[in-house]
């Protein structure tokens, strides 16, 4: 293929990226509609000095980190057991873990309304068993948001860990055990360092998704559990504060990049330590 032809083949894609992605993304920061230049910077500075906004940033970070930790804690064992299983069912179990990715977040989150609602599974079970007449408020809490997001992102954690783990020879663990290492030591010194790249990818994907999700916090958290994503929607579609929306978009993106960078760094350190 001549170089000229190759460039021609790239033109439609590059034009689409430029017009539909790069230029709008940059202009969103430099010049939102109906706002003076550099106003986004102003709004950003205001937000970083506003306790209400700092509370939202902190809640977003906290929920993102908790969801990531729980997804790895639950997802790693699934990935490990599936990658080591010789059962004929393991392919089907893997497919079952991936299957939820085919469903819209609205459908997946809706299930929690049935489980946590005031006449839902848990509330009815508690009253039915005579434990309490006034079941606690489960919906519209931070716990509900965390549960919904864990459900949403577990498949990503499992898939990322699985692709690392299935490449590690089980004989390495056998060798470690045979040489006298305990199960914990084998896990810590042999398995974990080798599985780290997949876990880091999984953690990055899960955090990026959880910290920027909209559907789940809006349905399960209500208005009291505001996260950055809800604030972005509020500015752009309710109060029409373009500079504010752009500043929140920048905050959200920066948060995702910072945590991605930190987890990559922590992963490398863990391996070389």
């Amino acid at each position: 293929m001549s170089r000229r032809n190759a460039v021609l083949l790239l033109v439609p894609g590059l034009a689409l990226l430029l017009f539909g992605f790069l230029v709008p993304a940059v202009m969103m920061l430099l010049h939102p509609p109906d706002t003076p230049a550099l106003d986004v910077g102003h709004r950003l500075a205001q937000m970083l000095a506003d306790p209400f906004m700092l509370g939202i940033i902190w809640r977003t970070l906290r929920i993102g980190l908790i969801v990531t930790a729980v997804c790895l804690l639950l997802g790693f064992p699934v990935a490990y057991l599936l990658s080591r299983s010789t059962s004929r069912w393991s392919g089907l179990l893997l497919a079952l873990a991936i299957f939820p990715l085919l469903l819209s977040n609205v459908v997946r989150t809706y299930g929690w309304l049935v489980v946590l609602g005031s006449k839902g599974v848990i509330a009815q079970a508690l009253t039915g068993l005579g434990i309490t007449d006034h079941p606690p408020q489960l919906l519209y809490t931070e716990t509900a948001v965390v549960a919904g997001l864990v459900q949403l992102f577990l498949p990503l954690a499992i898939v990322s860990c699985y692709s690392s783990l299935s490449g590690i020879e089980a004989r390495l663990e056998d060798a470690a055990r045979g040489l006298g290492a305990s199960r914990t030591a084998t896990f810590r010194l042999v398995l974990l360092p080798l599985a780290m790249p997949g876990a880091v990818v999984g953690a990055t994907l899960v955090f990026a998704g959880a910290a920027t999700a909209y559907t789940t916090p809006v349905l399960l958290g209500g208005t009291r559990q505001t996260m950055l994503s809800l604030q972005l929607f509020n500015y752009s579609s309710v109060t029409i504060d373009w500079a504010g929306a752009s500043a929140v978009a920048l905050l959200m993106t920066a948060l995702v990049f910072a945590v991605a960078g930190a987890s990559a760094w922590a992963g490398r350190r863990r391996v070389t330590a």
Binding site: G13, L14, L17, G20, F21, V23, P24, A25, M27, M28, P32, P33, A208, T212, Y214, S229, L232, F233, S236, W242, A245, S246, A249, M252, T253, V256, F257
Partner: peptide
């Protein structure tokens, strides 16, 4: 460059397009 849209949160991409292409 072709893979880059994936790193931007979808809500942020949506905002950029809404603001710049639809309103702008």
């Amino acid at each position: 460059l072709f893979l880059s849209p994936i790193v931007l949160p979808e809500l942020v991409l949506g905002l950029a397009l809404y603001q710049q292409l639809m309103v702008g």
